[in-house]
Design a protein around this nucleic acid. Structure first.
Lengths: 214, 214
DNA sequence: CATGAACTCAATATAATACTTGATTAGTGA
DNA sequence: TCACTAATCAAGTATTATATTGAGTTCATG
């Protein structure tokens, strides 16, 4: 019979297997990507700027602690978040931001763009004074998006600016608060003479908080 | 001007400072203790069965990542959780348990005790067919407890059994699902001829979920 | 100001992690 | 079967984390 102390050791060690999987910047970046949609190893590797081998090894770590799961399609293997992970991820990010206001500061310093909050966005959409523009790649948009959002991937935006109304505020959104696509979009749209701001959160936060998705 | 990649590195590295603090079994056990009430270094050290020096160093890690904070009282220094941490901790524990059913299994195998769920407890308390007994140390009880709970610390329970009603179900609760005091209490109370079960969660979970506290 | 208690710090040995390189496996299609 | 692509594995090195020991602080009290 094991002692109560051994039992505790086992419990907290098992618990720590999950937290250790989250204890690495690259793996957090990977989870942030997977929060949007499942991806292949190669796609993740190029998104985070790492070698395939290194990316694969990080993915093994996440898989071993059952934070992600895999499906095979021919020669490619698709990694996806396990249910329940997105809630923890978003909660953790909130905590990190509350403890380190510099995160927010760094973002502001770097981009200097205006952003719109969730309640303000809701109000603006309801009164039809704004439209929501999702600039993520088509696949991610199709996987999940906010209701009423327009989809123009950032790569196509420059050539499709004429699809945007010019009498409303354009609210650009992408993966999350650290995704820079929305900021690029704001630049582009403003250059065309329209008004634009970025959504201060992102699709990930909204969905994790139970926001309706289409 | 920093590149978008450097900005991302900074963001996820800062983020990982928090997750790294959680990536160790002893530190998780410490957080589980602090979820109940603030404590001195010595108290934590003896609770987790580690040297004062080692405990102090783990606490420094938690403090550096701003997961805990300190207050000095004379020669003793009290460590406490920072606001927002308990939510993350409980969410993480849920995820860990969902991924590792063995945790639950191990608990059941070891204790073999019956437990009562939250809705069932609410109903039983409302109909006055059960009383809730909190067996944590007095200080923790005073720091926060569930409404209507009776307080008899586990050490005093054997000599105070006559304070318990003998016509109602006694529901024992302590810190959390891995705290073994509640199981010991159930043993003792059953030996006195009364009916007893443990509460399947613990005070920590209930409070983190917004349950009313006295 | 000397003492003891509560805690922190510094130095060390050991163990675990991260990233690279190059080899290997699994599946696809000519 | 052969070549090609996607992914994993294995080995080596550099870095980082952990627990122990013993010394050093800080503060209340006589």
């Amino acid at each position: 019979m094991t002692s109560a102390r051994e039992f505790k050791n086992e419990v907290y060690s098992t618990f720590a297997e999950v937290t250790k999987a989250l204890a690495n910047p690259l793996r957090l970046e990977i989870l942030d990507l997977l929060l949007q949609s499942p991806r292949s190893v190669d796609a993740i590797a190029s998104a985070i700027g790492q070698s395939t081998a290194n990316t694969s090894q990080h993915l093994q770590v996440l898989k071993r602690s059952r934070v992600v799961e895999t499906r095979r399609f021919g020669t490619t293997i698709e990694y996806a978040l396990v249910a329940g992970v997105s809630e923890v991820f978003v909660a953790l990010r909130r905590l990190a931001e509350a403890r380190h206001p510099l995160l927010d500061q760094a973002k502001r310093d770097y981009f200097g763009e205006a952003s719109i909050s969730r309640p303000a966005l809701r109000a603006a959409l309801a009164s039809k004074t704004a439209v929501l523009l999702d600039v993520r790649p088509r696949l991610e948009f199709e996987h999940a998006h906010l209701p009423g959002a327009l989809s123009i991937p950032i790569r196509e935006l420059a050539s499709r600016l004429d699809e945007l109304p010019d009498d409303r505020l354009i609210v650009a959104t992408c993966r999350g608060p650290y995704c820079t696509y929305a900021d690029e979009a704001v630049h582009l749209i403003r250059a065309s003479g329209r008004e634009a701001v970025r959504f201060e959160d992102g699709v990930g936060e909204w969905v994790a908080d139970g926001g309706a998705i289409a």
